[in-house]
Computed example of a mutant assay.
Amino acid sequence: MSRRLVVLTDRHQVRAGRSLRDVLGAAADAGLRIVLLRELDLPDDERAKIADHARTCGMEVLAAHRPVPGGAGVHLPAAAPAPEIPTRWGRSCHSRADAVAAAGDGAWWATLSPYAETESKPGYGPPLAADDFAALPLPVYALGGITVDNAAAARAAGAYGVAVMGAVMRASDPADVVAALLSAVRS
């Protein structure tokens, strides 16, 4: 099971005629094992239903900003403090210093972004330098503009793995994209 790929959800980017559940099922069938559930505009009970579906597909569910029942951890925004209750948690980071600070605060992982220009958040900011991903004190997932074409380069730059949203959510065949990403990030 590869832990080098995390897919972030965004049902608003899913192609017409398909649901987020369809995308998650296809991604799981292709070998995805970790999903980061966003859907922050949904009430907690709706997020919990999506998380339940992902788990029935065989995926570990990390939840953005606030936990979901049965979730494997929570992924916090950049400025959020460490959780007061013991849990596996990660943090969104936007610089090497942010990732080092997250490790010092006890984070288990971090996303570091943007790796490249991104369609999901155009104009978000200039991509980080490749060496920002090297030799960090916790597993860091390169996020932002990750595609099949640059995922291996992100790993070669030092990222533990890659985190992807748009490339999978917008894909005409999410399973093909997930399979190609998994192949690209194998160590």
Rank of each mutant, 00 (worst) to 15 (best):
G104R: 03
P83T: 06
R15V: 10
Y115V: 09
A82I: 00
V14W: 06
G58S: 06
V74D: 04
P43D: 08
K121Q: 14
L20S: 07
S19N: 08
P114I: 02
R47P: 11
V23I: 07
Y124G: 08
E46C: 10
A82G: 13
E46S: 14
D45H: 12
K49T: 12
E60I: 10
G73A: 14
P114H: 07
T56N: 09
H53I: 09
V61F: 01
R47Q: 05
A79T: 15
K121I: 02
A99P: 02
V35S: 04
P86R: 14
G31I: 13
S113C: 08
L20K: 05
A64G: 09
P126M: 04
S113W: 07
A101P: 02
R15Q: 13
T87Q: 15
S113V: 10
H53D: 03
R88F: 15
V23C: 00
G73T: 13
A26F: 07
G73F: 14
A30F: 12
A79C: 11
L36S: 07
Y124I: 11
D131T: 15
A48K: 08
A101H: 07
P114R: 02
V68G: 02
A16C: 06
G31W: 10
D52I: 00
A26T: 01
A103P: 01
D22V: 06
A27T: 04
G73H: 12
L24S: 06
E119K: 09
H12A: 14
R38L: 02
M59P: 11
L128K: 04
V35K: 08
G71L: 02
R88S: 11
D41M: 02
R21I: 05
R47I: 02
A26Q: 14
D132A: 14
E84V: 12
V74M: 06
Y124S: 13
E60H: 13
A26H: 06
P69D: 12
I50T: 14
R18G: 09
T111Q: 01
A51N: 10
K49D: 15
A48S: 11
R47G: 06
D105C: 06
R55N: 00
A130M: 04
W108I: 08
L62D: 00
D132W: 03
P126G: 08
A28H: 09
D29S: 15
G58Y: 08
V68S: 01
V68A: 02
P122M: 03
A79W: 13
A28Q: 07
M59V: 03
K49H: 14
T118C: 11
G17F: 08
L24K: 04
L128G: 01
A27C: 09
A27V: 07
T56E: 14
I85S: 10
A79G: 15
A28M: 13
S92E: 10
K121S: 08
G125I: 03
V35A: 07
P77I: 11
Y124F: 11
K49M: 14
Y124A: 15
G90S: 05
E119C: 01
L76F: 06
F133A: 04
D105R: 03
S120A: 15
H12Y: 12
K121R: 11
V100G: 01
G73D: 11
A99E: 03
V23F: 03
A129G: 00
V35E: 04
G25Q: 04
P69F: 01
A101L: 10
P126Q: 09
L40P: 00
R38A: 03
R91N: 09
A130W: 05
G58N: 05
E117K: 02
